[in-house]
Design a protein around this nucleic acid. Sequence first.
RNA 1: UCCAGAGUAGCUCAAUGGUAGAGCAGCCGGCUGUUAACCGGCGGGUUAGAGGUUCGAGCCCUCUCUCUGGAGCCA
Length: 453
Amino acid sequence: MRTLIRHLLATSEPADSVTIQGWIRTRRDSKGFSFLEINDGSCLANLQAVVDHATPGFEDPHPFTTGASVTVEGSLVPSPAAGQQWELRARRVTLVGPADATYPLQKKGHTLEFLRTIAHLRPRSNLFGAVFRVRSRLAFAVHQFFQSRDFVYVHTPIITASDCEGAGEMFRVTTLKGDPDARPEADFFGRRAYLTVSGQLEAEIFACALSNVYTFGPTFRAENSNTARHAAEFWMIEPEMAFCDLAGDMDLAEEFVKAMARYALEHCPEDLAFFNKFVDKSLEERLRFVADRPFQRVSYTEAVQILRSSGRAFEFPVEYGLNLQSEHERFLTEEHFKSPVTVFNYPREIKPFYMRLNDDEKTVTAMDVLVPGIGEVIGGSQREERLEVLERNLAFHKLRAEDYWWYLDLRRYGTVPHAGFGLGFERLLMFLSGVSNIRDVIPFARTPGNAEF
RNA sequence: UCCAGAGUAGCUCAAUGGUAGAGCAGCCGGCUGUUAACCGGCGGGUUAGAGGUUCGAGCCCUCUCUCUGGAGCCA
């Protein structure tokens, strides 16, 4: 029966008879015997198997090349040489699947660009094994965070007829052959349909019934964005809380980011140490900092003042009423505060219709969480719960109220103050791993012109 | 989408407009415990694609494609 390498390496006692199965990372030959470094993906580390050339199944060592899959039976013993605590003394070796000389992964380093072209093999590399183990762990941590706080997990639809914000390019879903706009009523759903850009509006529906809810699922944007931080398909986490204001929303956002940093440090130490060594040498220090220290909070107005009095020459102008640019956000979080920053109360003109209008009638209860190295990871707000104000907001943003009849119904019947935010799971992973390209934290990246795998 | 840079062996990279090369990987051999093992030998090229300038182009020019960095949009 097979034992995962992770468990064998964590053991405290020798074992007389164990079986491992995995892929050969490298083979080193000596006279009469060979060392096989075997990895099964259960952890970053390999298990070294020592195989005598007389071992059954290993009479010819040549097919046991990098990339080949093997089964090794033997005894786990303390290693007499430096470099590893345990090694497997083989009694029987079976070549499960050979890998010939065209196997593209080598034991030496590859560039991330090259590995992206072999997305079907890159999980077998140290870096991507670590990234996707951490991704899995953190997905679990997301659920644990919300479930332990009595949030209800809502599966919002992937196919939707509503354009959440009246902005953002959407992918069309249609079964029509010709022009889908010619007769939308003849289409599969009897109307125009798209892939969702956000589950927020649907999450609000459920928050106005189950109190605290969250979504965690794929989201799609047809924007022609070519950056290291954007993908056409990504996973978004969207909590929504009834009877909650902006302050409570910011509290939850901060608590969430801290909890994720803590979880990674605690549950993925081996993979994080690898990132810290090969990807970002300040990663662990930064995560501990984020986990321990309170985030800074400034209003948009204060942020503009800080930027204007910084004496810094920015490429883009800093002026009340304009959106903060990447360079401005980076200055605030990386240089001025040197800490995650939550910026709140933005001018209503630059934010969507559903955000709650403040008493000054100029700003809305928006908030963005900025973190060093990544920029914006969270965008959220308190939602407008007053029917007549929401109707005015729709008009202000030149949207048709009849398209949002069900959304307005939430305000007609038992409306409550409520708030929530959206967080890109991949951006969170970039922050927690130090990996700087979103294409490298998602198994199969969907970006403009790229859907090979 | 805009600006800048890049594309040479399976991989990482060299090569004043003048004979395309190295390391690693692979193959063959050596080595009694290796750790990105080491030592010796061998094979490996439509220089991203198309066109142009030139006696001669990997190198200069034009277009296309791809990638990278930055920007916009955002999560």
